[in-house]
């Protein structure tokens, strides 16, 4: 039971990192990235290949996963420099499919549809499965706390304000003297890097990755997490990820609660629930459980007229 709870915790952590990565590009800067699965795969493969064929330490693999995905994000953002909204969404979705096809067909590098197995994990094999799960959960929490703190500082600082200005109206931001193009590139690359980090940690945890694991379905889960949690808000992303995993896993126990359902119906109910939640979240809480608060001038440290008393 403890292993199971720990593994749910790790899954929440990975989903939360993915949600944070999407949050930087979409929630803060307003750039839709439907290519999430592609960057997730890029990070997972970079780290897996580096630590299996390359025999590098896990830590370096994870860093490489971040760098590769961020580099891919920078490249894609540069290519699509002038695209906005729907057009950017279509290109990123295409990118994600291209990555999957590359992983499927370049067998010399990625072992193709067989996938890469035996990816090392920290102390895997030396610990019992329970202790390994707990250790990984601990690492995951540390990574998550660091990322959340860094992103919060970023989002609440002048940099984050500039990103939000671009999201709300990029012409106004440009008129105010913000380097809109460069900021968009940076935000997209940073978001992609976080997706890659999640991918690397995913691979080392499960010890196996294959192209089938990076289907667009997971993108839907993450957008649900972010919409439920509150786009633009870092804690909201983490909370949303926890909520989505709780729903995905909690619905397994539906047949204990509603005994009349057949096994196939339970399976269908689980998938319906996810879709229904997405619709309900968009309809009733479009700004999420933890909405982004409009910033107040007093919190921004700007000088405000104040009466002396």
């Amino acid at each position: 039971m403890i292993s199971y709870l720990a593994s749910i915790g790790v899954t929440i952590g990975i989903y939360a990192l993915l949600a944070l990565g999407i949050n930087v590009a979409w929630g803060l800067t307003g750039m839709i990235n439907l290519g999430m699965a592609g960057f997730f795969a890029l990070g997972a493969y970079a780290s897996a290949i580096a630590t299996t064929s390359g025999e590098l330490p896990i830590l370096i693999g994870v860093v490489l996963g971040f760098i590769f995905a961020a580099g891919g994000g920078l490249l894609l953002a540069a290519i699509t420099f002038r695209l906005r909204g729907d057009y950017l969404a279509i290109i990123t979705l295409g990118f994600s499919e291209s990555v999957r096809l590359f992983m499927t067909n370049e067998i010399w590098l990625t072992r193709g549809p067989d996938g890469i197995s035996d990816i090392p994990g920290p102390l895997r094999g030396e610990l019992t499965p329970r202790d390994f799960n707990l250790l990984y959960l601990g690492l995951m929490i540390v990574v998550l706390i660091v990322v959340v703190i860094l992103l919060r500082n970023l989002a609440n600082g002048p940099y984050g304000r500039a990103l939000r200005a671009i999201r709300d109206d990029d012409v106004v931001a440009a008129v105010a003297g913000k380097p809109v193009g460069r900021l968009r590139l940076e935000a997209f690359a940073l978001g992609a890097g976080l997706l890659g980090l999640a991918g690397a940690l995913f691979g080392h945890y499960h010890s196996y990755i294959a192209p089938d694991m990076f289907l667009p379905l997971i993108t839907i889960y993450i957008f649900l997490a972010l919409t439920a949690g509150g786009p633009g808000n870092m804690l909201g992303a983490v909370l949303g990820a926890a909520l989505v995993v709780a729903v995905l896993e909690g619905t397994r126990f539906v047949h204990d609660v509603i005994p009349g359902l057949s096994i196939v119906q339970v399976a269908a109910v689980r998938e319906i629930t996810v879709g229904l939640l997405l619709i309900l979240a968009l309809r009733f809480r479009p700004r999420g459980l933890v909405p982004e608060r409009p910033a107040r001038s007093s919190e921004l440290g700007l000088s405000t007229p104040r009466r002396n008393r």
Binding site: S3, Y4, V266, A267, R270
Partner: peptide
């Protein structure tokens, strides 16, 4: 006890952990 793989390795791993650990 029956679980669904959803014909998806990522979902299947979560299901397998539930079967094994819970």
């Amino acid at each position: 006890v029956s679980e669904d793989t959803q014909t998806n390795p990522e979902a299947a791993v979560r299901a397998a952990r539930k079967l094994v650990d819970v």
